[in-house]
């Protein structure tokens, strides 16, 4: 039973992690543990998190995000200074070194979903397209968890 679940999970992760076309580098990116929080209405920006793993031998650069859910998706980073003051701003491109992972996680980087077009409803998913510097793209189905979720497990 457990192995069946694992097999399905593996098959699913392979499926969501499959690039649409073959390009130098970006086809080696595997997205794991993608999740987002539900939103209250559409006025507040949403956030999505995931781990980008580069299984290849070349560094890969993520340059842009696209989703029908939000007009302005962008990678943002939260920084907290020595006085405990947190600020947030766009990070631009993210390079995932060969054989390494970059985590988008609470308190660090996140996919900031600005100008939501629809409410993010718990239990639903939304497609998030990652555009890489080599022209490759990867579309991830991001599960929407509760507003109080702390990680991919809820």
């Amino acid at each position: 039973m457990k192995s069946t679940v694992a097999a399905i999970a593996l098959a699913f992760s392979v499926f969501v992690g499959l690039p649409t076309t073959s390009f130098a580098g970006s086809e080696d990116i595997v997205v794991e543990d993608a999740w987002a929080r539900a939103s209250i209405g559409i006025n507040r920006p949403g956030a999505a998190y995931m781990t980008l793993r580069n299984t290849g031998t070349d560094p890969v650069t993520l340059v842009e995000l696209e989703t029908p859910l939000a007009m302005m998706p962008d990678i943002h980073e939260t920084k907290t200074d020595a006085n405990g003051v947190s600020s947030m701003g766009p990070v631009g491109e993210i390079t995932i070194p060969a054989g390494e992972s970059v985590a988008l996680e609470p308190g660090g980087m996140h996919a900031m979903l600005m100008r939501l077009q629809t409410k993010m409803v718990e239990g639903e998913t939304f497609p998030l397209r990652l555009n890489f510097a080599d022209g490759g793209t990867l579309t991830v189905d991001v599960p929407i968890l509760g507003i109080a979720a702390r990680g991919p497990e809820g």
Binding site: I40, R44, G46, A47, S86, M88, I147, A148, R150
Partner: peptide, 17 residues
């Protein structure tokens, strides 16, 4: 502030935990 997508829900979730 409630329009904060990252730190505030994280802090509120942590505190809830």
């Amino acid at each position: 502030f409630t329009y904060c997508p990252d730190v505030c829900p994280t802090t509120l979730s942590d505190i809830s935990g």
